[in-house]
Structure formats: structure tokens, C-alpha cells
Amino acid sequence: MTETTTTPARRQHGPMARQDGNQTPEQRFTGTWWRCSAPACWNAALEPTPELLAELEAQGRKPKGTITITHTRADGTLLEGSRKGDGVFEIVRPHRFWFGRSLPGVLFIRNSRDKRADRWTIRRAAEALRAAGWSVEIDIDEDTRRSFAQAEQDRVERAEERAERFDEYAGNAAARSEGHRGEARRIAQGIPFGQPILVGHHSQRRAERDQERIDSNMRKGIAEGEKAEHYASRAAAAGSYDAFRNNPGRTLRRIEKLEADLRRVQRNLDGAGAQGWNPNHPDHAAELNRQKQELQEEVGYWRHVIAKAEADGFKVWSRDDFAKGDFARWRGTWYEVLRVNAKSVTVPHIHNMGPVVTKEGNRHNGLTYTLPYNELAGRMGGEEMREKLAAAKAEDGSG
């Protein structure tokens, strides 16, 4: 490996030294490139190969300049240094880069914020750019991130902006729909009811044009009406984002999954995982510790949401709340509890029909089902339920 000179230090690592071949299998760069001395660093500066430079010179062309690809968990993967019409977008589009109104003049990988860098995609995009004559600087910083609370607040604000935008789109489409329908009615009002087209008469062509205009406006009115319904539906979905994310039952299920992910990460850190992580490798250990910190922060955030819901009257059910013979309410139906488990209750199979399902009324050959505590909506004692059933039966009999 040859180290000839150095470039200025990158913002999170030391100076980058020139490398001519002999890359590690993880880097897989070819030709002339630069990297920092940190063994876990993925940053690099790729330059066109001497062969490509000679080819460009023979064609009377010059190297095209420098493109910078950066990634932080706070901002995602961004590509800067490109201008409209320079061909960069066409090169990196197959590698998931796109453009948007929120970042004018910058290309980015969608949904890359708050996530680990997709190094494979970044590397392939950089190699494609260098093959086209560009120098490429790769700057990956996995430690710069925003808190989960900040990310969640940003998602809520974006959802509110989408709701407002789609409301406006829906209103505009509805207005256009009514305009087209009104125009069709206006034209139709000028035609006597039941009047056919008089073939051969001097009014034939005008009548045909009126018919075409009525048909065209009605079709446009229907299309714009469907568009208005579509945007209204999207506005409603965006407007309910906050309520959807903070639904207590859904949040409890999310916490359960996050805690399982946290246990998996800890097993990998302990060297007992089976997912190819090596806790003795500096890059692997750093990433696993990042994941652990992020998961702990997210679990804490959602537990705060549940605590607030409990303060507002929401009940978090557990095995301490149920006993065999009680009834649990799930999706509008009461089921008799046959067994109390650590995370669920066992009940007669949910394919039994009716507002109340008991073990005597199990019509599915004794088949059972388990209902997680985080999906239950109520509890009633067995004696109280049987009194209610008896009273209802007596009332029906007297009637």
C-alpha cells in the first residue's frame, strides 16, 4: 500500500491518506482513492483512474469536478455538487437517489434519515460517478443524529403539512369537478328535452358539437370528483397520523416489539447472537451500541406516551387483572377466560359468534385462541357476567 500525501482532515476522523490499490474486501474500491486511518472508517475520496483521465484528454474533455455524498442519521444520505443538466441525476437514479422540494439543489436517498448508512448503495453510486469522470468524496458520520422525540415531532409536523396540502388539492379538484358538471348542464339546458340530432339539417354539426362537449365535461367532472375524493382520503389519513401513532393499544404492541429488538441487540453485543455480528470488530461494536442507545431512547419515549394515556384513564391490562372464569372483551365480544398466561389469556376460539362466548358455548370442538393483553378492551368477573346472561335470558323468556 502506498501513502504519498494527505488531504485535509475529515470532520469526524483524521487525515485521509492516498491509497493505490490493495483495498480491504469491505472497501472494494478500485484505482486511486483516499481514506482515513481509522480502521472502522468508511469514508473515501474517489478520483477518476489514470486510464479514464487519459481517455478524457484524448477526447478533448476535462474532468467534471467533485461530487460529495454525505450521510448522517440526522439528515440522511445527501448528494451535493450537482447542477441541473449535468447528467449526475441520471447516473445516480438507479442507485435510489431522488430530488424534492424540501432540499433544492440536493439529491438524496429517500427514507434514509434516522437510519444506518446504506454503504453498498453509496459505494455503487460513487463508482458509477467516477466512471463518468467525476471525483467523489464520501463522508459517512453515523454518530450525528437527532433524538427520537425530535424525529417523531418532525414526522407529526410533516403529516400536518400534508393534511393541509391535500385538503387544498381536494378543494381545488372539487371546484373543477363542479365547474365541468355545471358547464355540461348549461349546454344541455339549451337543447329541448328529447330533441334528437336532425341529420342533414343545418343544426346537425352544432348539435353534435354540443353532445361532444356535454360528454367531455361530464367525464372531466367525474374524473375531478374522484381526484377530490382521493385527496380528501389522503388528507384524512395524514390528519390522523398523530392519533394513529399514539393509540395506546398500538403503542403497547410497538413497545413489545422494540423490547424484543433490544434483547436481540444485547445478545449480539454479548457475542451470543446468530446474525453475523462480531462484537470484537470496532465497526460492529460501534453500530450495535448505537442501535442499543436508539432502541432504549425509543422505548422510553413510548413508555412516556403510555404513562400519559394511563393518567387520562387508559387501562393497561396484565395477568394480575384476570383469573380463570373471568371474561375479557376483545373487538366488541366478551370471551370467557380459560387460562391466564404471561402475555395473553386463552379463550374459546374467536370464530364463535355472539356478543358473549363461554366455554360451554364453544362450537369449534374445544378449539381455543389466545388474546394478548395489549389488545383487550375490558374485564368482567365470571359471576357478574353469568348474572347478566341469566337476567337477559329471563327477560327474553318473559317477553
Rank of each mutant, 00 (worst) to 15 (best):
R116Y: 12
R146I: 01
S112H: 02
G182D: 14
K115Q: 15
R155F: 08
R185P: 03
I187A: 07
F108A: 09
I138Q: 01
E164F: 00
V136L: 12
E164N: 03
G179C: 01
A163E: 10
A159N: 01
R176K: 15
E208S: 10
V199A: 08
Q153A: 10
W134L: 09
D141A: 01
E208Q: 11
G200W: 14
G194V: 11
A117K: 05
A207Y: 00
R155Q: 14
R124G: 05
R116V: 14
R181E: 11
I191D: 05
D154V: 00
I138A: 02
G133N: 04
W134T: 05
A128G: 08
R155P: 04
D167Q: 11
F193K: 13
T144E: 04
G100S: 10
R155K: 15
R185C: 06
A173G: 02
A126P: 04
N172H: 07
A175K: 08
E152K: 11
R116L: 14
E152H: 12
R186E: 11
H202M: 03
R119D: 12
A117T: 09
V136S: 09
F166E: 02
V199P: 02
I138H: 01
L103C: 04
S147G: 03
N111D: 14
G171Y: 11
E142V: 12
A159H: 00
F193Q: 14
L103T: 12
